[in-house]
Amino acid sequence: MKAIVIEAYGSSDQLVEKEVPTPTINEDQVLIELNATSINPIDWKLREGYLQEKLPFEFPIILGWDAAGTIKEIGKNVSNFQIGDKVYARPETTANGTYAEFVAVDEDLLAKMPENLTFEEAAAVPLVGLTAWQCLVDFSNVKADDKVLIHAGSGGVGSFAIQIAKSFGAHVASTASAKNEEFLKELGVDEFINYQEENFEDLLTDYDIVVDTMGGEILEKSFNVLRQGGKLVSIAQPPDEELAKSKGVTAGFLWLEPNGKQLAELGNLIKKEQVSVNVGHTFPFSEEGLRQAHKLSETHHAKGKIVIKIK
């Protein structure tokens, strides 16, 4: 099969096309013929070598951990899916990712695609959607009338987090640049904060939950907007435990755990149109297409998800 791989850590020039063996599946897996995948920061962070201690893969590495496509083969223990099903998934983080024509995925990580999504839209959901879900539902136990601050609301995780929080009946504030104000208000944001001109910590108080996607100074200042007993979850870096204790809040770092059941729950919100998917950019499945997509992701200024059309 055709795949885009890296054979050394480095710049986007390391992304090269190669013929590699089609994956063989075990008895609990399915083989998906991919129609689309998407780009996430983990892709280029791993490519640059930043994650080699956490993910010590051997080369060649196929990056990519979002899958949308059709089941071509099923293992003998697979009972909830059939050949021909349209599915999406956030596969396990292995060296055999989704910049490829086929990928093997464990049955418990799969969900059927919402019928109202294209393959490109479906590929934009799993990693960022599950990350937002686990931040808000698993870690923070979001509920109606909670006051929730979501940083960088126009990004992949932020845009899903806004909509998930609103689906639970929360009041949502979010930071972004002025050009994204209309987009965030369409997603349901109650209080928009232009981070280029306003300091969120001066405007917000007694919040129940903060979802941090930025780290650094933003993460540290986020403690100041929380009420006693509030929750702060970061996907950028582990929060300061001593600071959390002194402020009387629960703080933690979230590393996504792939989960098919949660992806199905997210799919139900998409079917009900409580959550929409915003594909901002689409690139072809080629060396140049992937290189351009990585460069755009690295700017941190892509609006909506960056998708690779494979088929």
Rank of each mutant, 00 (worst) to 15 (best):
A3G: 15
V5I: 15
E7Q: 14
E17F: 03
E19W: 03
T22P: 00
V30N: 07
L34A: 06
P41I: 04
G49D: 09
L51W: 10
F57P: 14
E58M: 06
F59G: 12
P60Q: 06
G64M: 04
A67H: 07
T70E: 08
I71K: 13
K72C: 07
K76E: 13
K76T: 14
S79N: 09
F81E: 06
Q82D: 14
V87H: 04
P91W: 00
P91Y: 01
A100W: 09
D108P: 02
A111V: 11
M113F: 02
E121W: 04
V125E: 02
V128S: 12
G129L: 04
C135P: 02
C135M: 15
S140K: 09
K143L: 08
D145Y: 12
K147F: 12
K147T: 05
L149F: 14
V157G: 08
A161W: 11
F168W: 11
G169T: 07
S177R: 03
A178W: 00
A178K: 12
N180M: 01
E186A: 10
E186T: 11
L187S: 06
D190E: 03
F192C: 09
E197L: 08
E198N: 09
L203D: 07
V210E: 07
L219F: 12
E220P: 06
R227C: 06
V233Q: 02
I235S: 08
P239V: 01
A244T: 00
S246P: 00
V249M: 05
V249S: 06
A251N: 04
A251L: 06
W255I: 07
W255H: 08
Q262A: 10
L263C: 08
A264Y: 05
N268V: 10
K271L: 07
N278I: 00
H281L: 02
T282D: 01
F285A: 01
I308C: 09
K311M: 10
